[in-house]
Amino acid sequence: MFEKKIEENLFQLLVQIADDKLILGHRLSEWCGHAPILEEDIALANIALDNIGQANSLYQIAVKLENKNRSEDELAFFRDEREFRNIQIVELPKGDFAFTIVRQFLYDNFSFLLFQKFCDSNFIELSDVSKKIVKEISYNLRHSKEWILRLGIGTEESKFNTQKAIDKIWEFTNEMFEFGNVENFLIEKNIIPNLDTIKTDWELSVKKIFDNTNLQIPNISYFASGGRNGFHTEYLGYLLAEMQIVARSNPNVKW
């Protein structure tokens, strides 16, 4: 269908986004049974499920493209830290509720814009799956946005916690707009969107909600980078150790 070089780049891209979703879903699933209120337990589990489900669908497209008889589970459970291609923001520990909500809000906004564009991709498998995914993200975004409003406006304490979370996370936001080495090639072929336009839209929608709640975007000069090339925080290794332990302690079996 596509020439080899496109397929290879496309595989990389799918794995990058799927890794984001899987690792974020993992962090969200850590809330299960520990949320501030029972209703939120159910909501966060739901969002975790959406993310892991999306990872699963994207890995499936990737392995089909790769055509090497690898399964989606091999991608998830049998790669090491340096082979994971997610951005660092998703691997940071779940933190308190404010941290989780701020991360969700920033990532959901990005992910929503990205998958909206993916719906128009020249790569049919991607545009098809994106039409389903974009609905899920749209709901996830509604959830995180509404919580930002409540935490930002609620009490002094909640505002303080939320601002603290933003200050901690902000340096990890720039990475969302990097696709390692794959981007230029795929943008040219109308397979993925130009990330600069997404960045502009992202900044606008984030700023709008922060302005409504008097939350400040920190003025910083350092931004993290490298996740797309397998350069991670130290947190990812521990996460993978936990996630992969059962699968790896007994490889090549059915579960």
Binding site: A45, N46, I52, N56, W255
Partner: peptide
């Protein structure tokens, strides 16, 4: 949930524990 050995099992378990909350 964080240690389930396949993506399918992970999703099933998460959905199940979520049901229990429900």
């Amino acid at each position: 949930i964080t240690r389930a050995p396949s993506l399918r099992r992970k999703m099933v378990l998460l959905a199940k524990v979520q049901d229990e909350g429900g």
